Simulated assay, not measured.
Amino acid sequence: MARRFRGESHHKVDTKGRVSIPALFRRVLEAGDPDHREGDNPNLVIVYGDHRRNYLECYTVEAIDEVDEQIAALPRGSIERRMLERLFNGQSFPTTVDETGRLVLPAKLRQKIGLEKEAFFIATGDTFQIWKPETYDEVELKRTEEWLDEMPDDFDPLTLLNGAGG
């Protein structure tokens, strides 16, 4: 099983679009890059996706390879395969962490999610997301809080794993 991303943090974005990646995230990127050697900078793929996606999703090389294999298993020429290829291959940006542990986010990606002076990183298991902090609070955090508020007071999220193979 591949290492997982864990945690969340805020990081400054400079005028050139450079942003530091959390150190723990860099270790997972290294472990998830089959070509990575000690002293090398790990590779990753940033999927920016369609107009409805208001965050950047960052995949290790192994994680995006898994997605690519699942897409390739769909019938060639099917609408589902063509759309997934467009969303995950066409609307993505392969990149490398620089020698100082930063990503350089192109202006197109920063503009798509409205990223300016600060980025919010949040782990999502085998990927991590980069958000404009205000958008995360207004959209995702609000959605999570609303979902939890619908649950009984004694709700334990681990109960959702019952029957999930664990």
Rank of each mutant, 00 (worst) to 15 (best):
P152G: 03
D156Y: 06
I122Y: 00
Y59K: 06
W147R: 13
E85Y: 01
E150L: 14
D14M: 04
D153Q: 15
G90Y: 05
E150G: 14
R143H: 13
L29N: 00
R86W: 06
D35Y: 00
V61K: 13
P34L: 02
D65C: 01
V45Y: 06
A119N: 04
I113Q: 12
V139R: 15
D156R: 11
A119P: 02
G125K: 05
L148C: 04
T124M: 11
R81F: 07
F128T: 09
L158G: 09
P94H: 04
G166A: 03
P42C: 14
V97C: 09
L148I: 02
L158S: 15
A123C: 00
H51G: 03
G17D: 11
P75N: 06
N41C: 08
F120P: 00
W131N: 05
T96I: 07
L161H: 08
G17M: 08
T135R: 15
E8K: 07
Y48C: 08
K12T: 01
R6S: 03
K112N: 12
E80I: 02
L105D: 06
N41T: 05
V67R: 15
R53Q: 15
H11F: 05
F5Q: 10
K142T: 12
T15M: 10
I113V: 08
K16C: 12
L74N: 05
D126W: 03
T95R: 02
D35H: 11
P157C: 14
K132T: 11
R86I: 01
H51Q: 07
E30D: 05
P75V: 01
R86Y: 13
L74Q: 14
I130K: 12
P94Y: 07
E85Q: 12
T96Y: 01
V139F: 04
T124E: 09
R52F: 02
N43H: 15
L44P: 14
K108T: 10
D68E: 10
G166M: 11
A2D: 09
I46T: 07
D156C: 04
S20C: 09
H10Y: 04
P157N: 11
R26F: 01
Q91T: 04
W147H: 08
E30T: 05
G165T: 02
S92T: 03
E85H: 04
I79L: 08
V45P: 02
V97M: 09
R82N: 12
I130Y: 03
T159K: 15
E30R: 13
S20P: 04
E80S: 11
L103P: 05
G166R: 09
E38V: 04
Y59P: 07
L148Y: 14
K132H: 11
D137N: 14
M83V: 10
V97F: 01
L105N: 15
Y136C: 01
F93P: 00
F93A: 07
A164P: 02
I122Q: 06
I122S: 06
M1Q: 13
T60R: 15
L115M: 03
G125P: 05
Y59A: 06
L160Q: 14
Y136Q: 01
F5C: 13
N43V: 07
Q111G: 13
R3N: 13
F121A: 13
L24D: 14
E66T: 10
